[in-house]
Simulated assay, not measured.
Amino acid sequence: MSGDPSVLYIKAILDAFTAAIFAITLGIMVAFIAIPQTLVQLTLFFLAMLVLPLTTPDMRADFSALGGLMMLMTGFRIMGIKSFPVANMLPGLLLVMPVSHFWAVYIAH
């Protein structure tokens, strides 16, 4: 959304390591998830151009914070430290920006 591809490069490297770990534990089926994952990521990439004008820096920061928290929880799950239900947190990615906007407009002003 920011136009800076460096974040995408870093995330691609993290995804490669995560995919390797999942491939070791889950087998060849991990390779087949690449097709729908690519479609979802391309859709998000193109929708970002439509969403960016509607967002504020605070909304984007909240979205990034949630993404970072989910990545941390995924790491804990992969390492076997704590098993968080990360898939249950995916709807939060859709809700974080409207909630952030509501908070900024109606509560924090």
Results as ranks from 00 to 15, higher is better:
residue 94 L to H: 09
residue 52 L to S: 10
residue 75 G to V: 06
residue 58 D to N: 07
residue 74 T to F: 06
residue 36 P to Q: 07
residue 44 L to P: 08
residue 41 Q to E: 09
residue 97 M to H: 01
residue 33 I to S: 14
residue 58 D to H: 07
residue 59 M to Q: 07
residue 30 V to M: 14
residue 62 D to N: 05
residue 31 A to P: 04
residue 44 L to G: 12
residue 19 A to Y: 09
residue 27 G to P: 08
residue 4 D to N: 08
residue 16 A to P: 06
residue 17 F to G: 13
residue 8 L to A: 08
residue 74 T to K: 01
residue 31 A to L: 14
residue 64 S to P: 00
residue 73 M to V: 09
residue 38 T to D: 07
residue 22 F to S: 08
residue 61 A to P: 01
residue 33 I to F: 14
residue 51 V to T: 03
residue 85 P to N: 06
residue 96 V to L: 00
residue 18 T to M: 06
residue 22 F to H: 13
residue 94 L to N: 01
residue 29 M to W: 15
residue 96 V to H: 03
residue 72 L to M: 12
residue 84 F to M: 00
residue 87 A to V: 12
residue 63 F to D: 00
residue 32 F to M: 07
residue 81 I to Y: 09
residue 65 A to K: 03
residue 39 L to C: 13
residue 64 S to L: 00
residue 38 T to C: 10
residue 90 L to Y: 10
residue 89 M to F: 12
residue 16 A to D: 04
residue 67 G to M: 02
residue 38 T to S: 12
residue 54 L to V: 06
residue 16 A to E: 03
residue 37 Q to R: 15
residue 72 L to R: 00
residue 22 F to A: 15
residue 9 Y to E: 04
residue 22 F to E: 12
residue 14 L to P: 03
residue 55 T to N: 05
residue 71 M to C: 03
residue 71 M to Y: 02
residue 34 A to H: 15
residue 5 P to C: 01
residue 27 G to H: 13
residue 72 L to P: 02
residue 7 V to R: 12
residue 45 F to W: 14
residue 40 V to P: 14
residue 22 F to Y: 15
residue 52 L to T: 14
residue 86 V to R: 04
residue 93 L to S: 02
residue 13 I to M: 05
residue 83 S to E: 09
residue 25 T to W: 13
residue 95 L to I: 04
residue 61 A to G: 02
residue 50 L to K: 15
residue 66 L to T: 04
residue 61 A to E: 03
residue 56 T to G: 00
residue 6 S to K: 11
residue 12 A to D: 04
residue 2 S to K: 09
residue 38 T to M: 15
residue 46 F to W: 14
residue 26 L to G: 05
residue 9 Y to I: 04
residue 32 F to Q: 05
residue 53 P to C: 05
residue 93 L to N: 01
residue 25 T to E: 15
residue 53 P to T: 06
residue 12 A to T: 13
residue 54 L to F: 11
residue 70 M to L: 11
residue 8 L to G: 06
residue 26 L to P: 06
residue 46 F to S: 06
residue 52 L to P: 02
residue 8 L to Q: 05
residue 66 L to R: 03
